[in-house]
Amino acid sequence: MQSRFEQGVDRIVRLGRKGCDVMEALGRAGLFLGQSAVGIPSREGWYLWLRQMHFVGVLSLAIVIVSGLFIGMVLALQGYTILVDFGAEQALGQMVALSLLRELAPVVAALLFAGRAGSALTAEIGLMKATEQLTSMEMIGVDPLRRVIAPRLWAGFVALPILTVGFGVVGIWGGYLVGVQWLGVFEGSYWSNMQASVSFVSDVGNGMIKSLVFAIVVTWIAVFQGYDLVPTSEGISRATTRTVVYSSLAVLGLDFVLTAVMFGGL
């Protein structure tokens, strides 16, 4: 039997080992990002990137657009019921636009992107690893980091900000649909209030910076989880789950930090 003291020491040792593992994984992930994302693409690389843009970008368009529409509509509905009590329903356009551009478009689009494209990237790369395709590529003398990983990383970096713009635009239009067409807010005040209060640099610009940060983090997590997983069916399923969980947490946590820096006067 172990004494209580030994058990305590054991627990500390395990904790320390866990900490070391986490730091090591972070280091590997950092090296991985540096080795794969930096470099000038070849002509073939551009083609591979375009194919991935289709896969992670175009195919995610439907879910992002539909969600954007509904979120815009709900925002207008909820906003109207509150604003109308103060007789301030003319400010509906301003409310819808600011919530979408500053917060909802970057965050929700990133969460959807992690679920739709991130998990698929992890599973695809994981399966390539499990079936030794990555190893055989290495043995042919082609670096999988450049050939498989880099196009996927860059496609994610570019696709998510574009999807976010789409989300925002459709969301504002959804708000217009409900607020103006259905609830009867004056159309002129919906648009002109929005125009007067939304600043291109601090609202649209900061929203886009957020979106770019989320794009880098989500794609990085997804691709690294796929590349680093244990090549078994269980390993693939775990890594896919981890991609969605880690990237969702990272997006929400980073959103708070970025908001605090951008709008919180830090």
């Binding site: 073939e44 079936t131 055989s136 590529m137 043995m139 042919i140 003398g141």
Partner: peptide
């Protein structure tokens, strides 16, 4: 490694390419 060829136990063919393109792959890249 360009001077080596390796035959894997599982074959390890690229699943997104057909048979012809799999064999053409080393020629196209190198």
């Amino acid at each position: 490694r360009k001077r080596m060829g390796m035959l894997f136990q599982s074959g390890a063919l690229f699943s997104d390419l057909n048979v012809f393109e799999n064999v053409a792959f080393p020629l196209r890249v190198h």
